[in-house]
Nucleic acid binder design. Structure first.
Length: 863
RNA sequence: GCGAGAGUGGCGGAAUUGGCAGACGCACCAGACUUAGGAUCUGGCGGGUUAAACCGUGGGGGUUCGAGUCCCCCCUUUCGCACCA
């Protein structure tokens, strides 16, 4: 590099090719060095520093990274590097969420075994990650599809089974025909499969394994309060998902048994206060008692089937919210336990079986849906709540119906009349409990987590079926149950593992007799529910991890990923944490204190997709602009929480900037600085010498930049403004080039500028920073070089430019010493020529001086 | 319908507590250096005007010496949930 003649004239010259920054050559050189030292990014074994666990959500190994990944990891990597430089013991691991359906689809399509396909993809993506320069501790790599990981899924399953949190039941499940498997409620999006937007989800009856996440519903809801470091949005989404609702269960008697399902219908209501206004019962078409009610009435049965069909259709089109209300009278009546009145029992398509009890009391006067239904079928509408305003006249006036507020007063409600709604709810619930026909209850929207999948590429469930002993769990020493290779995969339905006799046939752990294995596998969300714990102790073959290590590293200090995991992954992993805590394995009760959800990477305003042909490949960007520019642009183009519109011309701007930085180092290399006469003339105690104005300005800018980058980095996570600040500094350096040439800026300052620029860029453009660090004559490892500190005195301005307003409008600018008093500022403002001209003939009513900020003169006409 | 965000030049975006709106970058224009330019450097760049005045942060009100920022009403838009009883 010293072969290039330094231009001490400071004149603009053309840039020869060899002066251009060549990212490929530089990045490859450093990548090679970094890869030769596997311990480079390892956390300390015997910690002497405070810990910091930064984690990006692990990817599914689909075959290639996309820009969304790059953005996610660029953020995490910048943070990890920043924390290293700030003296933390950083844990920054990576792994692979590698079970799941795409591997099976690929197997069918290409006739490649899922394992081979998956491991091949992992190798390819790992290579991409290394090329991008992400600083992961690969010695802790977790690959969920390998037995050394999934055996612990099985281990946890046995523990869950032992504690009654894993159970099996026959249930109506969501079935995706294209996946040929069951979906969790969380995987059904608007009636469609989360993976196949155009595939309506069917309902099937199957024996399934469930995890009792509802046991933790209340705690999962309550602890959201503690997660102040999570985006409000995510907490709200989880809150809605859990959907806690307080209400009352009330039994309505059908006046004699109608069949096996009994003689009462229990309704759930949040408004028991309106029960005197109930004029019918409405059942969901799937309600169990309907089988009994229709047993001798084929016509009614057919009508109910029709309602079910309507509901299904509406669900499939995602239009369940707007379903045209239909219902049918069953011919039966039920007794309202409060007033003894017999009210008709109907079946209606707007009642869903999977919320509450699948049965409601219909109160048309005080519920919009019930009102609409009652109007349509001519059911009685009975007012039982009046507005309770201070204005008596209004209170006595019947409100327009339906009247739904719950701050009114009861009427026509027997002994409860004249009570407020709130009091009535309490007293009526109490009354029901005393008399044994009802009770207070809490319902949740959250359902238990169905984890059975009729697929091959997942963790085998460690249970067997014995003819003699029935359902038997395996024991710890039987683990892992290895997922066999060479399994024929089809989408014919049913579990592929059932067709493998060597797998299927086993012996019962209890009696030693012949038994069959469970052939379903686990939902892949099981894998990702606890993977981040495994990173702390990834090679442990005696336990999932060592609790002492969890105590040290957890909770995760910063978790970073896409908002699409706001519900599924993030609620399951919170559940898993609470379960492990209750097992005594860990002490923390939340996995991550801080969560950051980055925005999507889009192109031309649309999500990148193969269909639209607007996919930007990271490989191509790296090949064209280098890893640094690719990463840095993804940090610069938008604040990290917003969507980022990828523009090729934008990354060119970053490339240009990096080139400018590089040329600054190239033009003033350390060798030359030592040798030039200008350098030699700098006295040894140059730092103590008063600086020229140009040098002082640059020095000040340098300290201001350090200050800004530091605060934007840690406080606000605005990487875009961090980069903008560094750009400003570089622009100022170029602006002062003439002073460099005339030696009015010392080589000591140039060296300081260079070192600080390398340090400031290190988290965001690691390759180039390392190169620059070496060019600046530094031999230490930049990865752990101390983050620069700014000097507040040196960052301070000597004088300030202060805007002067008249009546709030800018009318002039004055320059005052930085520490000027209010009086001085006011005097200077009034003395300014422009201001004097502007206020001529006017009377100054008031002068507002904000020290160091602004002057506003309130001027009125006349004197 | 409920909940949470967002709305600023041609574009991406700055403006941390109310205090010079448009930092930084892109695009564009002009110039320099060039055999050349998809290189580099310098300058310009919200509207308006010769220059000013003036107008400008989705719209309308308000508070204030002063509002992109605070308050009220409305519009648009993104995301999540939804006959949830």
């Amino acid at each position: 590099m010293s072969a290039y003649p330094v231009n001490l004239e400071g004149k603009t010259v053309s840039t020869p090719r060899d002066e251009r920054y060549n990212p490929q050559a530089v990045e490859e050189k450093w990548a090679e060095r970094w890869q030769s030292d596997p311990s480079l990014y390892a956390a300390e074994a015997h910690p002497t520093k405070p810990k910091y666990y930064v984690l990006e959500m692990l990817p599914y190994p689909s075959g290639a990274l996309h820009m969304g990944h790059v953005r996610n990891y660029a953020i995490g990597d910048a943070l990890a590097r920043y924390m290293w430089m700030n003296g933390y013991n950083v844990l920054h691991p990576m792994g692979w969420d590698s079970f799941g359906l795409p591997a099976e689809n690929a197997a069918i399509k290409n006739n490649t075994p899922p394992k081979q396909w998956t491991l091949g993809n992992i190798a390819a993506m790992k290579k991409q990650m290394k090329r991008l320069g992400f600083a992961y501790d690969w010695s802790r790599e977790v690959t969920t599809c390998l037995p050394d990981y999934y055996r612990w899924n099985q281990w946890f399953f046995l523990k869950l089974y032992e504690s009654g949190l894993a159970y099996r039941k026959k249930s109506r499940v969501n079935w995706c025909g294209q996946c040929a498997t069951v979906l969790a409620n969380e995987q059904v999006v608007g009636g469609m499969c989360w993976r196949h937007e155009d595939q309506p989800v069917e309902q099937r009856e199957l024996e399934q394994w469930f995890l009792r996440i509802t046991k933790y519903a209340d705690e999962l809801l309550r602890d959201l309060e503690k997660l102040q470091g999570w985006p409000e949005k995510v907490r709200t989404m989880q809150q809605n998902w859990i959907g806690r609702s307080e209400g009352t269960l009330i039994d309505f008697d059908l006046g004699g048994t109608v069949g096996p399902a009994g003689s009462t219908v229990t309704v759930f209501t949040t408004r028991v206060d309106t029960i005197y206004g109930a004029t019918s019962l409405q059942l969901a078409p799937q309600h169990p008692i309907i089988a009994d009610l229709t047993a001798r009435d084929a016509g009614l049965r057919a009508q109910v089937e029709d309602l079910i069909a309507q509901q299904r259709l509406a669900r499939e089109t995602g239009d369940i919210g707007n379903i045209e209300k239909h219902g049918v009278f069953t011919g039966r009546h039920a007794k309202n336990p409060f007033n003894g009145e017999a009210i008709p029992v109907w079946v209606a398509n707007y009642i869903v079986m999977d919320y509450g009890t699948g049965a409601i009391m219909s109160v048309p006067a005080h519920d919009e849906r019930d009102y609409e239904f009652a109007k349509k079928y001519g059911l009685e509408i009975r007012l039982v709540v009046l507005p309770a305003n201070l204005d008596e006249e209004e209170t006595m006036t019947a409100p327009p119906l339906p009247y739904t507020p719950s701050d009114g007063m009861l009427v026509n409600s027997g002994e409860f009349s004249m009570l407020s709604c709130a009091d009535a709810i309490k007293k009526m619930t109490h009354n029901a409990e005393e008399k044994g026909f009802g009770k207070a209850t809490v319902t949740y929207r959250l359902k238990d987590w169905g984890i059975s999948r009729q697929r091959y590429w997942g963790t085998p469930i460690p249970m067997v079926y014995c003819d003699k002993d029935g359902l038997v769990p395996l024991t710890e020493k039987d683990l892992p149950v290895i997922l066999p290779d060479n399994v024929p995969i089809t989408l014919a339905g049913g579990s592929p593992l059932a067709s493998v006799p060597e797998f299927l046939n086993t012996t019962c752990p209890k009696c030693g007799g012949p038994a069959r294995r469970e052939t379903d596998t686990m939902d892949t969300f099981v894998d990702s529910s606890w993977y981040f714990y495994r990173y702390t102790d990834a090679r442990n073959d005696k336990a999932p991890f060592d609790g002492a290590k969890i105590d040290y590293w957890f909770p995760i200090d910063q978790y970073i990923g896409g908002v699409e995991h706001a519900i599924l992954h993030l609620i399951y992993s919170r559940f898993w944490t609470k379960f492990m805590r209750d097992m005594g394995l860990i002490k923390n009760d939340e996995p991550a204190w801080r969560l950051f959800t980055q925005g999507m990477v889009i192109k031309d305003g649309a999500k990148m997709s193969k269909n639209l042909g607007n996919v930007v490949s990271p490989d191509e960007m790296v090949a064209r602009y280098g890893a640094d520019a690719t990463r840095m642009y993804s940090l610069f183009a938008a604040p990290p929480d917003r969507d980022l519109d990828w523009q090729e011309s934008g990354i060119e701007g970053i490339q240009r900037f990096l080139g400018r930085v590089y040329r600054f180092f190239l033009k003033y290399p350390i060798e030359t600085r030592r040798e030039t006469p200008a350098a030699a003339s700098v006295p040894p105690n140059a730092a103590a010498q008063p600086l020229t104005p140009e040098a002082r300005a640059l020095q000040r800018k340098m300290h201001q930049t350090i200050k800004r980058v530091t605060s934007d980095f840690q406080g606000r996570w605005h990487f875009n403004t961090c980069i903008a600040a560094i750009m400003e500094l570089v622009n100022d350096i170029y602006g002062a080039e003439a002073a460099f040439a005339s030696a009015r800026i010392s080589f000591l300052l140039i060296g300081e500028l260079q070192r600080n620029i390398a340090l400031l860029l290190a988290p965001m453009a690691p390759y180039m920073s390392h190169e620059l660090w070496a060019m600046a004559g530094e031999t230490s490892n930049l990865l752990k070089a101390p983050w620069p500190k700014y000097d507040a005195v040196l960052a301070a301005e000597d004088e300030k430019e202060i805007p002067v307003q008249i009546n709030g409008k800018l009318r002039g600018l004055i320059v005052v010493p930085a520490g000027a008093s209010k009086d001085q500022i006011e005097k200077a403002a009034l003395a300014d020529e422009k201001i004097q001209a502007a206020i001529a003939g006017k009377h100054i009513a008031k002068v507002i001086v904000v020290q160091g900020k602004l002057v506003n003169l309130v001027a009125r006409d006349g004197s």
